[in-house]
Simulated assay, not measured.
Amino acid sequence: MSDRLKALSDAGVSIWLDDLSRERIETGNLADLMREKYVVGVTTNPTIFAAAIANGERYDEQVAQLVDKGEDVDRVVFELTTEDVRNACDIMRPVYDATPYDGRVSIEVEPLLANDTEGTINSARALWAAVDRPNALIKIPATLEGLPAITAAIAEGISVNVTLIFGAQRYREVMDAYLTGLEQAREAGRDLSTIHSVASFFVSRVDTEVDKRLEAIGSETALALRGKAAIANALVAYGEFEEIFGSDRWRELEAAGANRQRPLWASTGVKNPDYDDTMYVRDLVVAETVNTMPEKTLDAFADHGEVLGDVVTGKAGEGRAILDRLVELGIDWEDVLVVLETEGVDKFKKSWEELLETVSGQMEKAKA
């Protein structure tokens, strides 16, 4: 057991693992992480599944069965990934039963649909039905086209992990989409208490993009701001969360049984080796949030992470001050956000194509 991870959990941070594989499920590794490292949720994406399937013989039998049935590669991917998520949901079920928010496993809609509202809605419905577990979360990207899909999914009672959020304004739109979906669900007579959501606000990628621009400016003032933008941006986002979920609109939904959409800090592994490898966990501790970590970051925090109490609440002004300084230095903040979202969607699409390629290769082996 890790005292440092226990302290993080005791501070109200839900520790989720940003990884999943059939090996983790079948060897008991996921259950071990729940018991020993306070892991209470799982997030996945196409990159994670591509690595798991490429490196794991545990998928071979199911691939062979699906090939024998004449399924195409898209269907094979769908069956393999929903099987893993369903089984992970079952492992997480005791946590789900014991806590109001945790024990959840996320699976992403097909990334090629990121700019297709109807396609995203249909993909969300199909994944929700196939996993068929109340503790699943369907990941929908926070693109402009994704916003109405979030509302539609929530209105139908589908629990959603909104992913790829980079800026505070888009985050407000995500929260509005969630509340609108809840209002529609209430009008339809649904039980709001069964609908859950997290909003995945990406962290480290912000520093990667901004640091590059600060280094191009090159002044002492600019260089001193490296590694500051991501946390500042997250502090501003949390201020937006406090405002929206302190509103009369929210209180009315809460009275009807609705659950808050918790902030989830994503992309929390450091990209710059010069930075403390726990900074995106340590500097974002606040109760009733989620931090989803790759295992490397989880192990780093278990080894030397610090919990300094709530370091987020009431700090939105400090975050804004840093973002204002960046703008004064010539950083085009709106362009930073556009670049990050565009790159994020492109990376997810590329990962999806790699996943299809990996599975196609496994299917060819099964036919041989």
Rank of each mutant, 00 (worst) to 15 (best):
R93Q: 10
L144N: 07
A136D: 01
F202K: 02
N161R: 06
E183D: 09
P141D: 02
G146F: 11
N115I: 12
G167T: 10
A124W: 11
A98K: 01
R186A: 15
S197Q: 08
L80R: 02
A177W: 06
E110V: 00
R205L: 08
E173D: 07
D84C: 08
N122V: 05
L144T: 05
A98G: 03
Y171S: 06
V131N: 10
P141Q: 03
R86D: 06
M92C: 08
T81G: 15
D191C: 12
E118A: 13
Q184W: 14
T120D: 10
G157P: 08
R190N: 11
L182T: 08
H196S: 15
I158K: 02
T81L: 10
A153R: 11
G181K: 05
M175V: 03
A124P: 02
T143K: 07
R172N: 03
R125H: 10
I158T: 01
A136L: 09
F202H: 01
T82A: 14
E145L: 13
G181D: 01
N115Q: 09
R190A: 08
L127M: 11
Y171P: 00
E187F: 12
N135W: 09
V105C: 15
R186T: 05
A168F: 13
L112P: 00
I165S: 09
I195T: 03
A114F: 15
Q184P: 15
T180Y: 05
P111D: 06
Y171E: 00
N161L: 09
G103A: 04
A188K: 07
Q169A: 15
G146N: 05
I150V: 14
T208E: 14
P94S: 03
L179H: 05
D176Y: 11
A130I: 06
V174T: 07
N87L: 14
E145R: 10
G157S: 08
V198L: 06
V162Q: 05
R125T: 07
I165V: 12
E118S: 13
V198H: 08
V105D: 07
E173N: 09
A185C: 13
S193D: 07
P94Y: 14
P148Q: 06
A136I: 03
P134W: 14
R125N: 04
L182I: 05
L192G: 01
V95Q: 08
F201Y: 10
E183L: 04
D116I: 01
P100W: 13
E173I: 09
I150A: 06
S200A: 12
M92W: 10
V105M: 14
T99W: 01
D207H: 05
K139M: 02
V131P: 12
V85D: 08
T82I: 02
C89Q: 00
I138T: 01
V162Y: 09
A152C: 13
D102A: 11
V109P: 07
E83D: 14
V198E: 01
I107K: 14
G119R: 09
A129E: 11
A129V: 10
